[in-house]
Computed example of a mutant assay.
Amino acid sequence: MVLKELQSLTGHTGRVWNCSWNPKGSLLATSGEDTHIRLWGKEGDQWVTKTILSEGHTRTVRNVAWSACGNYIAAASFDGTVSIWDRKNGQFECNATLEGHENEVKAAAWAKSGNFLATCSRDKSVWVWDVDQDEDEYMCASVLQAHTQDVKRVKWHPLEDTLASCSYDNRLKLFKEDDDDWVCVSTLSSHDSSVWSFAFNNDGSRIASCSEDETIKIWQEFKPGNEQGIKTPGKDSAWKCVCTLSGYFSRPIYDIDWCAQSGFIVAAGGDNSIQVFKESDTSQDINAPEFEKVLTQSEAHSEDVNCVSWNPTERGLLASCSDDGDVKLWTLTDC
């Protein structure tokens, strides 16, 4: 198995923090220190800049997220705001700016249903916004103060309106709506240091998380009445750390993504490498699954790798971005 570099995309100045594919896999959004969002599309055999969204923010754009319909982008910025872009008129335009966080906004994420947007911040909070896309209205539904430190990422369950977050407090948390309020239903504790990122598998029954502690952890959901006899808190699921991958990275692991098509997990971080893992063919026990590394791309970038993202439709196509200012496209062969 080989990870082959297809193209290096240049254009950003300064570090590039985030890369995110639209749902069709036809556009890649990137953002970084230069305050710009670049949208890349394919022309012939090459990926080129299609659009530069440059007027939404005054500081670093830390994260960009696509809505499930592909017509909206939310951008989280160190200027403390989240910009909302839509292309109702054919081109992406900023139609709303969400304010309320008291410090740098680190990430945003749309629920697959389209009904909610989540944001998180250095101010230790997670906000859930009610979305009315017809009226371009975004109302704060809840401010969640469950974490005790900087919240790094928020992501939604792939099939339902369950929200997850991770933080400098070494924990992941899951939230659900309960009687018009949002409540924490699970706290996932096993990492020894900051949890930088995480990813759900294709059906949301597992989470892979990565940390400053240089480990990857696999979490398994156990629903009420599960065959394994794992106790659950009432009507909500229990989550259990069932596997820890350690010794593969020599620096903190900054990002992780779980491919819905192939089941491969990709992770990257401060040692400049990109590494790919998969569940072993011999893995059978849901309580103790076995995962193995299938490849290491050493010096994938010349500095920290901040984000890795599998294309949602083209099997094996991967995007990465780095402090070195480059965005790279890769293809994983024999996957």
Rank of each mutant, 00 (worst) to 15 (best):
V2M: 10
V2T: 13
V16P: 08
L27G: 01
G32I: 12
G32Y: 03
E33W: 14
W40C: 00
G41H: 09
E43I: 11
D45T: 13
V48H: 00
K50P: 03
I52L: 07
S54E: 15
S54F: 11
T58F: 12
R59V: 01
C69N: 15
C69K: 03
Y72Q: 02
S77D: 07
F78K: 01
F78G: 05
F92M: 07
A96G: 09
T97S: 12
L98D: 07
G100E: 09
H101C: 11
N103E: 12
K106P: 11
K106I: 04
A107I: 09
A111T: 00
N115M: 12
A118Y: 06
T119H: 06
V126R: 01
W129P: 11
E135R: 14
D136P: 00
C140G: 03
A141Y: 00
A141F: 05
Q145D: 11
Q145C: 12
T148E: 14
Q149M: 14
K155S: 11
P158C: 08
D161E: 12
D161L: 09
T162L: 14
C166S: 02
N170H: 14
N170P: 04
R171D: 12
K173E: 11
E177G: 03
E177K: 14
D180R: 06
S186R: 00
S190L: 13
S194P: 07
W196P: 08
N202C: 13
R206W: 01
R206A: 06
E214P: 06
E214L: 11
K217D: 02
G225R: 02
N226A: 11
N226C: 13
K231E: 15
T232M: 08
S237M: 05
K240E: 14
T244W: 08
L245N: 05
Y248S: 11
F249N: 05
Y254Q: 05
I256V: 15
S262G: 09
F277C: 03
E279N: 02
S283A: 14
I286R: 08
N287H: 09
A288P: 07
E290Y: 05
E290T: 14
E292K: 03
A300D: 05
T313M: 02
L318W: 01
L318K: 04
S320D: 04
C321Y: 07
S322F: 04
D323N: 14
V327G: 01
T331D: 02
T331Y: 03
L332E: 03
D334S: 15
